[in-house]
């Protein structure tokens, strides 16, 4: 549909936030979030510190109730912390009014949700163009950019299809295109494969990873699926409102190294990481793979989700 011939129409001036080199995309310092439920304070996050650098590929893992969704909402500027400092795209969230925060989301963050959240009765191209509406971009240019973005996610032939005419995988691709059409600094994906079968999910993950590698957008993916999480270069395990581990793999699924620079909110953590295996850890004797497994064990072993077997642990499925 686009008149342009270039496969990737990325006008440099359309970059919403040009972060100076060395400035993190998102920086959270001792961030906490407390909800008031019927007069009772419930702490969802209890002092989380982390930094997302431009272009990173980060998986946030944790069981339900761990606070990872709250963390996701905070990182995306959908919510404000009740304590600590949160800087998104170089701007301190605490200083922003609701409209300014909305503009920050529009310019800096792209969201991909488990349930796609596409507007029904609205064509794919109009769905993708939605964020551009709130940026005040004219209809013609919106359609051009949205069509080009749909082309990048492999849906150039489905521009005018409505969500109910698309498969689940295609709907999620539309959602991904919508998240990236604004050229954000960070793509926040909340269980992006949660509603998809494994083959479709794999394709969506590959698309996300390709876009992360191609465009330099930081990819932050919330998941409870260890296999999915293991694909990310960096994994942040959240539990009980705290970061329990924050590890970087040099290469996905190969030996992981601790991330010394990252602060850890857990008071019991060791100086380098919470992931250091203490004596008596059940996973201690698992042999070669235990090195990687052990670093994640506090979170991994407490999981009650799809099996607490050692085989399901990150690294355990490594060929």
């Amino acid at each position: 549909m686009s008149a342009r011939s270039e496969p990737v129409p990325r006008a440099p001036q359309s970059r919403a936030v040009t972060l100076p080199v060395g400035v993190p995309a998102i920086e959270a310092v001792d961030v906490s979030r407390t909800y008031q439920l019927d007069g009772v304070s419930v702490a969802a996050l209890r002092g989380v510190s982390l930094t997302i650098d431009p272009g990173e590929y980060v998986a946030v893992v944790g069981p339900s109730g761990s606070g990872k969704s709250t963390l996701m909402h905070l990182l995306g500027g959908l919510d404000r912390p009740t304590g600590g400092r949160l800087v998104i795209g170089g701007r301190d969230v605490a200083t922003l009014s609701p409209p300014e925060l909305a503009t920050l989301r529009n310019e800096t963050i792209g969201f991909v949700f488990q349930a796609f959240h596409l507007l029904p009765r609205t064509s794919a191209v109009d769905n993708v163009a939605l964020p551009l509406v709130y940026r005040g971009i004219g209809a013609r240019q919106r359609r051009e950019r949205a069509a080009a973005m749909l082309g990048r996610v492999g849906l150039g032939h489905r521009l005018d299809h409505r969500p109910n005419q698309l498969s689940g995988g295609e709907q999620q691709r539309v959602a991904i295109a919508r998240a990236l059409v604004t050229d954000p600094a960070v793509l926040l994906a909340d269980e992006p494969t949660g509603n998809l079968d494994s083959a479709t999910g794999e394709a969506v993950l590959e698309l996300l990873e390709r876009l992360n590698a191609e465009s330099g957008v930081a990819l932050v993916m919330v998941t409870h699926d260890q296999e999915v999480a293991a694909r990310a270069r960096r994994q942040i395990a959240v539990r009980d409102g705290r970061v329990r581990s924050d590890t970087i793999h040099d290469r996905p699924l190969s030996g992981a190294v601790d991330r010394p620079a990252t602060l850890d909110g857990a008071p019991s953590a060791g100086p380098r990481s919470v992931s250091g295996s203490g004596p008596g850890r059940p996973s201690g004797g698992s042999g070669g793979a235990a090195g990687a497994t052990g670093r994640l064990s506090p979170a991994a072993l407490d999981r009650t989700g799809e099996g607490g077997h050692g085989d399901d642990l990150p690294g355990g499925g490594e060929p």
Partner: peptide, 14 residues
């Protein structure tokens, strides 16, 4: 829909 519009940058006024 309102939640989504807000997530992609709609201000309360919009």
């Amino acid at each position: 829909e309102i939640g989504l519009r807000k997530a992609v940058g709609a201000r309360p006024r919009d």
